[in-house]
Nucleic acid binder design. Structure first.
Lengths: 224, 224
DNA sequence: CGGTTGTATGACAGTTGCGTGACAAAACCG
DNA sequence: CGGTTTTGTCACGCAACTGTCATACAACCG
């Protein structure tokens, strides 16, 4: 299911767009302000965003820039203003297309499809967390040391990810039990054992660990 | 240097576009007919193609389709006709954008830039996914190993495509059940079985798979 | 320094997760 | 309709993993 987010302050127009797009088979949702739209997109990303330029508060241009900052979603501006200056500015801000109201829904839909044809082909890179020679990619379910894959078990992997996500911070055994194992209570030695096993695999000298370090009385942390 | 090819039969308009785009810093070339444009693009590909719809001989729609057949170049239609039906047809044929004459060069330039932003992100616009000796073409519904076609069943193919689309990422059995079978719940062994069958066909040594690998406790992933 | 607390590690048995072959139901196809 | 292919289910065996325990070691403290 492909989702479309419509950011438009005029209730009538927004509703009309939403209904029309829904008829075209999109899963729609709407926002009346840039702030609301940004929040929605951050929480549950849509596959396309339609945005008006004249918005109360944060205006359309700024909205586009902020959307672009942490998202590669295709953005289409739907504006009443047919002005070269606006069009150029919107596209420069990061929009992918600009259509002038009133717009035929069929056309809008075709433009969205054309846009998605391009956007979909982009293979999102697999994010990797690095700690010195250590590379952890949660999505790939893979750990590498100096480029070489290190076989780790599921529990070890979860533990490592948890530590990596909070790099530099101490996590107590209780916190780790909670987050990795889901235990509300349990033997804290369990954590020790797995940390030990992990060290055998990822540390050069497991005896004096450089990345997965113990903080006596506090817990463990992962450092760079 | 970014090159733009303008396919437009009206000499005056073509010249005007070429000059204006040259001013904007593009390396331009022009063609008066679809045939000529296709030949030029095949011999020395430009980074963008502008095409008129009303062309003598091969018309604009057909021109777009033929361009698309062996090229992923961004195509912008520049037409005098402001008609929803034409716009939709052109976009469906494979165009990326549609602007109506007369058009401001600044706008055209901005649209080209926006388009190229997207297009560049696609490194190899091949509809074939390769994993070592393995070739999967989702569109053609075909799998090859070392060039030789491999007969796979529909379910196997879908499973393979799903994994290929998320190359390098782990997909849990649940996710695969959901996406390939549409099951919200079900026996996860089912996935194992099909993965096993797939391995018999695509792996050199199904006993120790190199591409379709298991991540114990996590799921499966396809690697290069 | 000895006592105390906290941490590392090796061994082990129970458990889990995975791969596979067999088989029946279902879909497909002349 | 009969044969063939595809699909889903099941049970079993193997290998890998997990958690517990006991013991040894290291750090802290007065």
């Amino acid at each position: 299911m492909t989702g479309v987010l419509v950011i438009e302050d005029d209730d009538r127009i927004r509703l009309a767009l939403l209904l029309a797009l829904e008829d075209e088979g999109y899963a729609v949702r709407g926002a009346a302000t840039a702030e609301e739209g940004l929040r929605m997109q951050r929480r549950e990303p849509a596959d396309n965003v339609l945005v008006d330029l004249m918005l109360p508060g944060l205006d359309g241009f700024e909205c586009i820039r902020q959307l672009r900052r942490d998202d590669d979603v295709p953005i289409v501006v739907v504006s009443a203003r047919d002005d070269t200056h606006d069009i150029v500015a919107a596209l420069e801000a990061g929009a992918d297309d600009y259509v002038v109201k009133p717009v035929a829904v069929k056309e809008l839909s075709a433009r969205l499809r054309a846009l998605r044809r391009r956007a979909r082909a982009v293979p999102a890179p697999v994010p990797v967390l690095t700690f010195g020679p250590l590379e952890i990619s949660p999505d790939a379910g893979e750990v590498r040391r100096a480029g070489r894959p290190v076989p780790v078990t599921r529990t070890e992997f979860r533990l490592l990810c948890e530590l990596a996500e909070h790099a530099g911070r101490v996590l107590s055994r209780q916190q780790l039990l909670q987050r990795v194992w889901g235990y509300d209570t349990g033997d804290e030695r369990l954590v020790d054992v797995h940390v030990g096993r992990l060290r055998q695999k990822i540390e050069d000298d497991p005896g004096s660990p450089r990345h997965l370090v113990t903080l006596r009385g506090l817990g463990y942390k992962l450092t760079r």
